[in-house]
């Protein structure tokens, strides 16, 4: 009951003729536009991944076991995020903070995996300047990593606000918006994992 009142208060703050919460609508518009951003990078990667004149080539360097682990971590962070939101909406502050911290921590772990992967690739001779695969791979995964980094900063900021001023149930929309962004980063990775890693790692995917 308290839950519903909190939601109503939240909506009262942004009442309008559409009866939709404008902050949430704006977030969805942003996510829709971000699809175009990543769509362009994914298209570029798919076009040029097999056009490199020199190696390393995708199937020589991509590591499915390592990337599977980082994918599992990002999927788990999405679960932690939705549990954090549920806890905030129910007014369970301690659980909400735990899950919010867990989400941010898992996000940092994912970034650690990405840094490790980039470092390994550079060690093995693949940089953005090496070939077309390197240029498109680092651009796509780098921008995704940048999105994850922004999400981690957002989550830690929310955690800081929760620790200092508190985030009551009627302000849970602040957490929900961060959650939408975080889940979006997750679904983009779902696509990247399939297109960049699983499909590109096959020997038959190479035409060099």
């Amino acid at each position: 009951m308290q839950h519903t009142e909190a939601s109503e208060q939240q909506n009262t703050d942004h009442a309008n003729t559409t009866k939709l919460n404008m902050r949430k609508l704006l977030m969805w518009v942003f996510l829709g536009s971000d699809c175009l951003f990543f769509g362009a990078f994914i298209a570029t990667y798919m076009l040029y991944r097999n056009s490199s004149l020199v190696g390393p080539y995708p199937q020589e360097i991509l590591s499915i076991p390592v990337t599977s682990a980082s994918t599992f971590i990002l999927l788990t962070s999405s679960l932690a995020m939705v549990l954090a939101l549920t806890a905030f909406q129910r007014g369970n502050t301690s659980a909400a903070r735990f899950w919010l911290f867990s989400t941010a921590f898992l996000g940092c772990t994912f970034l650690g995996f990405q840094v490790f992967e980039f470092y390994t690739f550079v060690e093995e001779g693949l940089t953005p300047q090496t070939n077309l695969f390197g240029a498109t791979f680092f651009t796509l995964t780098g921008f995704h990593g940048f999105h994850v980094m922004l999400g981690v900063i957002w989550l830690f900021s929310l955690l800081g606000v929760s620790m200092t001023r508190g985030i009551p149930a009627e302000k849970s929309l602040d957490v929900e918006l961060a959650g939408l962004y975080w889940h979006f980063v997750d679904i983009v990775w779902i696509v990247i994992f399939t297109v960049v890693y699983l499909l590109s790692s096959l020997p038959s995917a190479s035409s060099h």
Binding site: H3, T4, A6, S7, E8, Q9, Q10, N11, T12, A15, K19, L20, N21, K24, F72, L75, T76, S78, L79, V82, L83, T86, Q89, S172
Partner: peptide, 28 residues
């Protein structure tokens, strides 16, 4: 009334924490 605001949703059949965990397991 504000209760008719269409994105007021938190008690409108959203999954429970257990269901979210189940969804996480399915994704894994």
């Amino acid at each position: 009334s504000t209760s008719e605001n269409v994105d007021s949703h938190h008690d409108s059949g959203h999954p429970t924490a257990k269901q979210y965990v189940l969804i996480g397991i399915i994704l894994t």
